[in-house]
Design a protein around this nucleic acid. Structure first.
Length: 238
DNA sequence: TCATTAAATTGTT
DNA sequence: AACAATTTAATGA
């Protein structure tokens, strides 16, 4: 694993195309955008790099420009539990930033990624001044609530095909992760880390889902063919 | 641009 | 965990 380095030292200004991939900028008025756009920075994370750690004071609201992160926490036994992956277009940590608390999860890069950050101060400025931003955040919180409920179901299921299907359906969520689109860049090994299965089992599950015409496996990624059915895969009425 | 080689990823046992 | 097969990325003429 990477040494104890936060990425904050390596922050740089975003390129125009990186800035264009920030989903909430489109919800702001021109003057609101002018107020905060210059405060957005990005950093290049290598596999294993920490974006944030449990217990650190929240300094940024983070978003994935490109790549794949994993969100995890350490339990009492000392082993870490992975909750979810965060692919392109996903912004996270607003709950922590809103309450000005410390981060409750570890976020690490699963692969080389570009991570954007908006300073806490500017996040609060938008909450106080922008209706469009408030709508975006509310929508995001609402969508994530649905995700958590779905995640609780996944924990109860021990069928690997269903676990993989649900996890994929989450990663393909177009509201939370608008940068993903039809094709999710993820290797079968990375997906195995996220869902907590062996790569072999993930490989077999993916082939099952492909045979069902739900996804198509590609080299270094997956294409979703039917997101609605992928979400329902394994349910009695499906 | 193309051919060769190395590296990454996938399929299988 | 190991191995073979396949795909992509990198290199250099």
């Amino acid at each position: 694993m990477a040494p104890d380095l936060t990425l904050h030292q390596r922050r740089r200004a975003p390129t125009p195309s990186e800035l264009a991939s920030v989903p909430w900028l489109g919800h702001l008025t021109a003057s609101e955008r002018a107020e905060v756009q210059g405060a957005i920075t990005v950093s290049d994370a290598l596999p294993g790099d920490h974006v944030c750690r449990v217990g650190r004071a929240a300094t940024y609201w983070f978003g994935v420009v490109e790549g794949l992160l994993k969100m995890s926490a350490d339990n009492e036994q000392g082993n870490s539990m992975t909750f979810t992956g965060v692919p392109s277009g996903g912004w996270f940590g607003e709950g922590t930033v809103m309450k000005r608390e410390t981060y409750r999860y570890n976020i690490q890069a699963l692969r080389a990624s570009v991570v954007a950050g908006l300073p806490v101060h500017h996040f609060h400025w938008l909450l106080d001044h922008s209706i469009g931003f408030n709508r975006f955040v509310m929508n995001q919180l609402n969508e994530r609530l649905g995700q958590f409920i779905a995640a609780r179901e996944i924990d109860r299921l021990n069928n690997p095909e269903i676990r993989v299907a649900r996890s994929l359906a989450i990663l393909f969520n177009p509201v939370l992760y608008p940068g993903v689109g039809e094709i999710l860049r993820i290797t079968q090994q990375e997906l195995a880390y996220l869902v907590g299965l062996s790569r072999q089992r993930v490989n077999m599950a993916l082939n099952t889902l492909q045979a069902e015409q739900l996804i198509r496996t590609e080299y270094g990624g997956l294409r979703v063919l039917d997101l609605a059915r992928l979400r329902r895969f394994g349910l009695p009425n499906a």
